[in-house]
Write a protein that binds this DNA or RNA. Sequence first.
DNA 1: ATTTTATATATGATATATCATTATTCAAGT
DNA 2: ACTTGAATAATGATATATCATATATAAAAT
Lengths: 225, 225
Amino acid sequence: MATNLSKISRENLTSKVFQQIKEAIMSGRFQPGERLPIRSLATKMGTSITPVREALLKLVSFGALEMKPAHPITIPILNKEGYLENRTIRLANEGLAAAEAAKKIKKRQLNRLVKINDDMFKAAREKRFADAIAHNYSFHIELCRAAAMPALLEIVEILWLKIGPSLNMLHVATPNSLTIAKTNFHREILQALEKRDSEAAKTAMEQDLIQGGAALLDYFDNQPS
Amino acid sequence: MATNLSKISRENLTSKVFQQIKEAIMSGRFQPGERLPIRSLATKMGTSITPVREALLKLVSFGALEMKPAHPITIPILNKEGYLENRTIRLANEGLAAAEAAKKIKKRQLNRLVKINDDMFKAAREKRFADAIAHNYSFHIELCRAAAMPALLEIVEILWLKIGPSLNMLHVATPNSLTIAKTNFHREILQALEKRDSEAAKTAMEQDLIQGGAALLDYFDNQPS
DNA sequence: ATTTTATATATGATATATCATTATTCAAGT
DNA sequence: ACTTGAATAATGATATATCATATATAAAAT
């Protein structure tokens, strides 16, 4: 029996389309309010409308896209209230993830987090703000992965999907106010993980989420939409 | 302009199908492992397969149903590990919901919770276990609604969808061990809500979730699947 | 009787066609 | 110039047809 045969990708079209649109959303390639018509996406991606529709419906069911009857599917426009609710829920879930990760994280995963954090600082120093935002996202997701709770990871990914477009819009609107690399608590989180101190990890994570959203809150306050 | 015109239901077929299947899952009309073939459901419901497929895919994306490539869609079989992860996440999210509800709940909502709880006890006394389980579910969902955080409510509903079939299976397998009405902390939760004591509400909720799952944990321990 | 193989069936995946509703455009009327 | 109304286009919703793959059944071989 031949070994080392490469796995044939049995992923279906819907999954591929979903991943691609999801990544596009998280990397800020759509503005809040922007339309995502099924047909034009299908044309761009070279599939029929069925897989695109299914992928979009999935994102809608996660609250990452908005759909009103007989209206085009759009990127939701987050307001202050919605952001604060999202932050409160992330506090609970990412706090839990940090506490669990402190118990379970392996050296390799910890090193990976350190590297992601370094990359984030480097990107911010070099004013590659979009990259910095992406690395910040990776930091939170990978930490959540270290908690080894797949259902929790899914929830946290959904929560970030909802704020992704606004986060990226912020860096376009006011790149100078990007505080991701200046006032975060990643170091405190990493230290707590290394000490395997669940409580400290949770607290540091909560502070990080509150600080990380300060710039966005300022934006909402000065943008009386 | 005429007023008081009744709203025309613009809900689409997919939503209706989704609601119906969701309720069927939560009320235990499907066994863990049972198949849900698209075509036969569509025939039963009198629609084409498209709305049914979309509704099922939505449930799959919530983790309430399982789908392997080229296999029938099924009700997932929960194991002890999966249940414990689900419980841990509910502790965080329903704890938050209870704390928020303590701040925001209105008298009408509190009265409603009291009534649901009474109904649950009544159902349990009369050995209508399925009803008791349904009322317990309502209690948790309505409390979550009182927190006035729509995104949190969605998450909690998803979490319950995943354990619904197993909860109902339990009451069929071992109706005598149904402890829902005996060892719950609903009274403590209600008292905390009335006092507007967030911390107490959170603690009582956590105890309720742990106690409420004890019977299911026993089942997993004696069922070495 | 058991195992193997071939056929038929069931099922999800994808593409396409058509419908209803809304948004847009543009011309006519004021 | 502005408003109104009709025609057109855009868009999601639904139904149906076809395909690929897995499962179940039946037949054949041992």
